[in-house]
Amino acid sequence: MNTEPKTSTKVISFIVATCIALYILFPFYLVVVNACKAPMYITESPVSMNGVSISQLFSNLNDVIHNVHFQFWYAFGSSVVITVVSLVLLALFGGMAAWVICRNKTVWSTVIYFAFISSMIIPFQAVMLALISTFRDAGNFVGIAMLRSIPGTIFAYCGFGGAMTVFILNGFIKGIPYELEEAASIDGCPPEQIFFRVILPLLKPVIVTVSILNGMWIWNDYLLPSLLLGSNSAVKTLPVAIQSFVGSFVTQWNLILAAALLTITPMVIIFLFAQKQIIAGMVDGAIK
C-alpha cells in the first residue's frame, strides 16, 4: 500500500514547515539582533545585522540591569523565590489535600472537591478588586504584611493554583491501588506516614506535570503581582519590573529589547534542557 508519502510531498512540507518556523522565530531574531545595537542603528535598519556588536550588547545589558526602575537582579530574585516556594507549597499542600479528598468518600469531601473544580471557571478579574482589600484588611488586622510582600504573593498563588493542582493530582491518586495503603496500614503505618512514604513518592511524575503548568503561569503572570505588589513597590517580579521599566523608557528600544532578552533567556534555557517534560506536561495538563 502507498502509505509512504512521495518525495515531492515531503520536500514541499519541509519547505512549508521551515517558512512557518522562520515566521515564528523572526520576533526572537529581532530581539537578539536589536539588543546588540546602538539606538541609531535600530532606526536605520532594524532587520539587518548592521551595527551588531557584543560590546554594545553588554553596555545595553549593563544599562538595563542597573536601571532604577528595573533593578534586574532584585526582580529576578523575587520572581525565583515566589515561583519556587509557590511550586513547592502547591505540590505539598495540593498532594495532601488531593489525597484526603480522594480517599474519603463523604459529603464534605465531595463538597470541597466540587468547590475546587467549579472555582476554576472564575476569572481572576472577578475577584481581584476584593482580593486587594481583603489582603489589606486581613494583613492590617493580624499584623502581617500581605500586600507589597513576597509571602503575601506566595499565599495568593497557593490559593489560586490550588484548584487545578488538586484536580490533576486527584485524577492521578484515583489510579493508585488502595491495597497499597491497606497493606501499609496493616503493617502499623500511621496515615500521615502512608502519605509521605507510600503516596508522595508515587506522585513524582504528576507533580512534575503540575509544577510545569503552575511554573509557567506564575513566572509569566503580570496582573496578580502588579496588583498585590503595586507598581511602585520595592518588591517586583520580572513582568512587573519590565512593565514599569518600559513605562519610563518608551523610546529606547535597544534597552527595552535588552530587558526582554534578559527575561526570555532563563525560560528558553530551561525549555532547551527540559523540552520533553515541558511539552508532555502542558499536554497532560490540558487533557485532564
Partner: peptide, 18 residues
C-alpha cells in the same frame, strides 16, 4: 491537618473575595 493549608489559602484568596 492535611486539608487545612490549601483550604485556608483558597478561602482567603478566592471564596471570600468572590
Amino acid at each position: 491537618i492535611f486539608l487545612f493549608p490549601l483550604l485556608f489559602t483558597f478561602a482567603v484568596t478566592v471564596i471570600i473575595p468572590l
